[in-house]
Design a protein around this nucleic acid. Structure first.
Lengths: 192, 192
DNA sequence: GACTCTATCTCGGTA
DNA sequence: TACCGAGGTAGAGTC
């Protein structure tokens, strides 16, 4: 199996996981008819002798959409959506993944005074997360139906630089404990 | 990719080694047209939604010949054949894989006194290796052209029980250092 | 980019 | 059969 990045894998007809032999990209494949030679910049060589060719097919698959994993940032967001009061007393969820033209806002809530709060959720709170929140808030301000929008930056750990930037822009910073949150969540969100 | 043992692997178009997702055999695959459901006895489920089918090919490959690895017992035997004096002064190779009716003897040599020596080579010397050597020597004694045959048991490590048995039968025990042997071998046998 | 840690790890070896 | 350790580990997350 030769993939789009040039890597080569030789699979046996059993055992899903590991190829018999392989070479990762970057490499170069030379097709010599009855044998292929694959070499990489480290000077390693993989020679494949072809005894018989039963089939040979090739397809273009285009961009790899990749995988999105469950149980990390998405799961943290889910837990916070289920228990907004953990972040601030009186907070109520308006919606998760609130759509804007520049991407969805993780959480939009209303506070005890009915003011709109835009919340950016990260596992590790760093500067780029604060910038992201700023862009969303700027965007939400254009939506006159929401009135004034307050920002809140929520993460398991917020780095000092990120905290300074966020607070200088008037965003509240909240650190949350993932495990405690998990214990607090309603049964249907718990994994055990 | 579905293999002969029923295992299923979903590969992205890059990164040779690891599938995006997979399920090992034993399992059962149910083809529901637009989606496949793979389940295993542990109760785990893998559901594959088919967005588009570009190609579908199937081949019978027959018995898997497997892989034989270099650098293990066969390689040790090769190195010893190239340097018999490592095992005993004056030893000269007669031949490797000396054929008998019950299988090949790893090495047959002649010692300084021109006596025939049958040698069993193992990575780890255990009792079954000594028994194997005994059978070969018994067999070689039937071959009157060789005269008396002495036994030698050679391994990287010889277990105490195996050593006791071998020496009680009059076989010399020799432990050899693979790495030292490798450094000692002629250039064409060296890998670097 | 270097380093650390996890894995439905796989795979081989040994008690 | 269970446990332990290495791997061309790969791959993701972190500093």
């Amino acid at each position: 199996m030769v993939k789009a990045d040039g890597c080569v894998a030789i699979h046996a007809d059993g055992g899903a996981y590991k190829p018999l032999n392989w070479m990762n990209s970057p490499n170069t494949l030379t097709d010599n008819g009855d044998h292929w030679v694959v070499t990489n910049p480290k000077g390693e060589t993989l020679t494949i002798n072809l005894a018989e060719v039963l089939d040979e097919v090739s397809h273009e698959f285009g961009e790899d959409p990749g995988l999105t994993k469950d149980g990390v940032e998405a799961h943290l967001q889910e837990l916070l959506a289920a228990s907004p009061e953990v972040m601030e007393d009186g907070l109520r969820l308006v919606r998760r993944e609130y759509p804007t033209a520049i991407g969805p806002v993780d959480l939009v809530c209303r506070d005890a005074d009915d003011g709109v709060v835009a919340i950016e959720v990260k596992r590790r709170g760093e500067i780029d997360g604060v910038e992201q929140l700023s862009r969303y808030i700027e965007r939400l301000h254009l939506d006159s139906s929401l009135g004034d929008v307050r920002g809140m930056f929520v993460a398991q750990v917020i780095k000092p630089q990120a905290r300074v930037l966020a607070e200088s822009r008037g965003y509240r910073c909240v650190e949350v404990d993932y495990d405690a949150l998990r214990g607090l969540a309603p049964d249907e969100l718990r994994l055990f």
